[in-house]
């Protein structure tokens, strides 16, 4: 008890009264910090690291992204570049007429979304800056196979699953830490 005095503890009456008063203050004047998620959803900052895809025209098939990927989510798949500049699966490219210019062999990255950790190392190692970012992050698939899209599926950025909800942006607020305001 002697020790207790040395620490400047609050007395029982004052301590209880202050605790109850603080609780009551928040009860009558609630500061709600929660985001009511599916009804409202956050409009994320432009640099948010979400789902991404690769620019087919820019990619040179160098495999650097596959090498740097920490969870080994990126796989390079063989592709051929047709004379018109399109990237095609290997079989279609091979079935071209004889005599035409031979299709150029190349490789393209595909991401297994079940393994990706969104570290964006692939983004930064890319020598031609071919990756394209989006800030969609709240997406889940039903099957394991859906997490591993085909190259064509991977090229399309996924749609925002909560597109219809009210978009809000977080703003720092003196009273409640973060306040969600309607996005401009």
């Amino acid at each position: 008890m002697k020790d207790k005095e040395k620490r400047k503890l609050r007395g029982d009456v004052e301590g209880n009264a202050r605790a109850l008063a603080t609780g009551f203050k928040y009860l009558v004047e609630p500061n709600r910090m929660t985001l009511d998620y599916p009804v409202e959803s956050m409009k994320l900052a432009p640099n948010y690291r979400g789902f991404f895809t690769v620019d087919d025209k820019k990619c040179i098939g160098c495999s650097m992204c596959e090498m740097v990927c920490p969870p080994e989510a990126i796989t390079m798949i063989p592709r051929v570049v047709s004379p018109t500049g399109e990237t095609l699966p290997v079989q279609e490219g091979a079935s071209q007429e004889a005599g035409a210019k031979p299709a150029k062999k190349t490789k393209r990255p595909v991401v297994n979304w079940g393994r990706c950790i969104y570290c964006y190392f692939c983004f930064d190692i890319c020598p031609v800056d071919a990756f394209v970012r989006s800030n969609v992050h709240d997406l889940a698939y039903y099957n394991d196979a859906d997490y591993r899209p085909s190259y064509e599926g991977y090229l399309k950025l996924p749609e925002d699953p909560v597109k219809k909800s009210k978009k809000v942006v977080p703003r720092p607020d003196m009273k409640r830490g973060i306040k969600y305001e309607p996005a401009p």
């Binding site: 609780g23 928040y26 009860l27 609630p30 709600r32 910090m33 929660t34 009511d36 409640r176």
Partner: peptide, 13 residues
């Protein structure tokens, strides 16, 4: 609901 109010959240909704 009371606890949620004090704790800056919604509570059952």
């Amino acid at each position: 609901k009371i606890a949620a109010k004090v704790q800056m959240r919604y509570g059952p909704l």
